[in-house]
Computed example of a mutant assay.
Amino acid sequence: MRRHDPTSKNRQGADVGEQYRSIILYTDESDRKEMDLYIDKIRPSFSKPILTEVKKLDEFYEAEDYHKNYYENNRFQPYCMLVISPKLSKIRKEFGIKSQD
């Protein structure tokens, strides 16, 4: 597990509720098969069942403008500074990605 826990149902970190469920949406069967193969591949590395839902994308709703690019537009808000920024720093360090700040 890197920065996401696929074994938690309706929760990611301190955020709880169905809107925080782990889900992968696909648009065609070849993507579905690839996702299933990957989940099968990583399953042995977890001590609990993987609860990530794999579901066909039925309908897409574009986010309201205030949700778009939220981190980029709000990086000095407490949640961004205390939760998102540290996660991004860890990912950048782990994968050798230089910060765009």
Rank of each mutant, 00 (worst) to 15 (best):
M1I: 12
M1L: 12
R2P: 03
R3Y: 12
R3S: 10
R3T: 13
R3V: 14
R3G: 06
H4K: 05
D5G: 01
D5V: 01
T7Q: 01
T7H: 01
T7I: 03
S8G: 06
K9F: 03
N10L: 06
N10Q: 12
G13M: 07
G13K: 06
A14C: 08
G17N: 05
E18A: 06
Y20D: 02
Y20R: 00
Y20V: 01
Y20N: 04
R21S: 00
S22A: 13
S22E: 04
I23S: 02
Y26D: 02
Y26W: 15
Y26N: 02
Y26K: 00
T27K: 13
T27G: 08
E29L: 15
E29N: 13
S30N: 11
S30E: 13
D31F: 05
R32A: 04
R32G: 01
M35T: 09
M35A: 08
M35F: 12
D36P: 02
D36G: 04
D36T: 08
L37D: 15
Y38M: 14
Y38W: 13
I39Q: 00
I39R: 00
I39N: 01
I39H: 02
D40V: 05
K41V: 04
I42P: 00
I42V: 15
R43N: 06
P44A: 06
S45Y: 11
F46H: 06
F46D: 02
F46L: 07
S47T: 12
K48D: 05
K48E: 07
I50S: 02
I50Q: 01
I50N: 02
I50F: 04
I50Y: 02
L51I: 09
L51M: 10
V54K: 01
V54S: 03
K55E: 07
K55T: 10
K55H: 09
K56A: 12
K56E: 11
L57N: 04
D58F: 10
E59V: 12
E59Q: 14
E59H: 13
E59G: 03
F60L: 13
F60G: 02
E62M: 09
E62I: 09
E62T: 09
A63S: 15
E64T: 15
D65I: 11
Y66L: 11
K68H: 14
N69T: 11
Y70P: 00
Y70H: 14
Y70Q: 04
Y71G: 03
Y71A: 00
E72Q: 14
E72Y: 10
E72V: 08
N73G: 09
R75C: 09
Q77W: 10
Q77L: 12
Q77D: 11
Q77K: 14
Q77H: 13
P78S: 09
P78I: 02
P78R: 08
Y79L: 08
C80E: 05
C80L: 06
M81H: 12
L82G: 08
L82T: 10
L82R: 15
V83M: 00
V83A: 01
S85A: 14
S85V: 01
P86H: 05
P86S: 04
K87Y: 08
K87L: 07
L88E: 01
L88K: 03
S89R: 15
K90R: 14
K93L: 05
E94T: 08
E94N: 09
E94L: 09
E94S: 06
F95L: 15
G96C: 05
G96I: 02
I97Y: 08
K98V: 08
K98L: 08
K98N: 08
S99A: 14
S99T: 14
Q100I: 11
Q100H: 11
D101K: 12
D101Y: 09
D101Q: 11
